[in-house]
Amino acid sequence: MSSATLSQEHADSDLPPSEPWSNIAEETEAASFGMWLFLGTEVLFFGGLFLSYTIARFLYPQDFLEAARHTDIYLGATNTIVLLTSSLTMVVAVRGADLGARRLVWICLAATAALGALFLTIKGFEYWEDIREHLVPGRGFAVQGFGATLFFSLYWIMTSVHAVHLTVGVILIARLAWLMRSEPLRLPDLPVYGLYWHFVDTVWIFLFPLLYLAGRA
């Protein structure tokens, strides 16, 4: 990986490697490896939700898809654009770390966190709207049929689990951005944060068609 040689040369990487690693390149490789393993576990975590979605849709196809038409596609699409843009800023941040451009790094990290926070705000507004339209299964649920109940049950669960992951990401990235303003670059951190953020984005890329585009042929 070219980042290894670059990082070893750069003056900013004065921070010593953590135990038990003997150099930054090793630690970066290890950190990325560890994050890939963690993302593997996350695939299985979300996988259980996607399995439940598939089964519910198979059991009650008509009602399920009919209910899917009640999601707010405009807010969903806007959020998709917001999140994809945040992945762009994250990519720039990671590349900037390779090049030692500390100012670029913390600005892009801050932008990523801000866009993530924007996503959450829009999502929060969307939730408020959903509640007002009685799209929460239970008493007063607005849509008929078992398929609809299951669709919205899964909608709330899947989007909240995704939102929790996003929130954790926003907080950690914002923290890193704050630290990067004054401290030397912690090189092993950037690819790790990047991988996590791209994963959260990828999950949304699956959620969006399943929850917003389904039933809207």
Partner: peptide, 24 residues
């Protein structure tokens, strides 16, 4: 790493159903 996450999401679904009445 491959099995435990499935338990985790199953517990989330139990909590969603029991606590928030979101049936699965």
């Amino acid at each position: 790493i491959l099995a435990t996450p499935v338990l985790a999401i199953t517990l989330v679904l139990i909590m969603a159903e029991r606590l928030f009445g979101l049936p699965v």
